[in-house]
Amino acid sequence: MIVQLCDTSASFCHYPNTRAERKLISVEALRKALRMAMCENMTVQFLYPDYALPSEYVELIESVDHAKVAPVGVTDEADIVVLPSLDRADEVKEGDTVCVRISRAELCDSVEALSALLRRVTRLNVSLTDSHTAVPEELPAYADALDRLGETVKEEYARGHFVQLNLLTDRLMLKQMNNCNAGAETVTLAPDGKFYICPAFYLEGDSPVGDPDAGIEVPNAQLYALSHAPICRSCDAWHCRRCVWLNRKRTLEVNTPGRGQCLTAHAEREASRRLKERMDAAAPGNMFNEIEKLDYTDPFEKVSR
């Protein structure tokens, strides 16, 4: 269960959150939802706003096992630190797990800054804000930037700092699909006290899929599962977030990714493969996955009729 505590809680994923007016979830709704989470054995992640929470909220939050996703500087106890911009990278502490939202162009222009961050953090999650709009012509620059970031990762490994960068190292370590799974394995409690597929669905004004009193009922829930995603189930870009919100935005179906998302994920997969080759040369016998070279850049090509 992801709990978006306030309308202004920072995004940690592909979706933007432009809401500026504070609207905190009610204590009563939060209490009910947390009771439900405990009864249903759900793990809980809280999405923090950029201001200090009232004490009754803090008390409730601390009453359950959880993870905190918070903007940099809000709390010292964040499990995942959200960086609103790379300009504030200095505020990140050594060993943090950090999330940053940037466009592909920004990533290409910020390899130095991201490399500096990689040298200090345990894990860096980059959420691209425009992966869905990628076209083949734009990908060589992105691939080049990933290779340069891969060089930093390799150097860090050489000095015993096993940093993770989701775009590159996840595919090297995963053995199967490891996606967001919103709607299938996760659900979001929004500040209105109701459940949504994910924060993006709430922010876009979608209908809720339940509340702590009535329970959760996702219509056509099977379509959020990998088994019902014809393109994704035949794909091995296992690190791909497989964002159902982007899917629907691009193809009108939650189970079908648009070409941009697939091209981006495969550019990352291919960069991971190249990184593996370089790692093999530098550190033979490493535990990373072998990654096969593919003859397609979009799994749609092999699935479509």
Partner: peptide
Amino acid sequence: DQDKLRPFLTLDRLT
């Protein structure tokens, strides 16, 4: 918009 055609072109009976 080719993206909007993708669900149709990958649709199968079982799914």
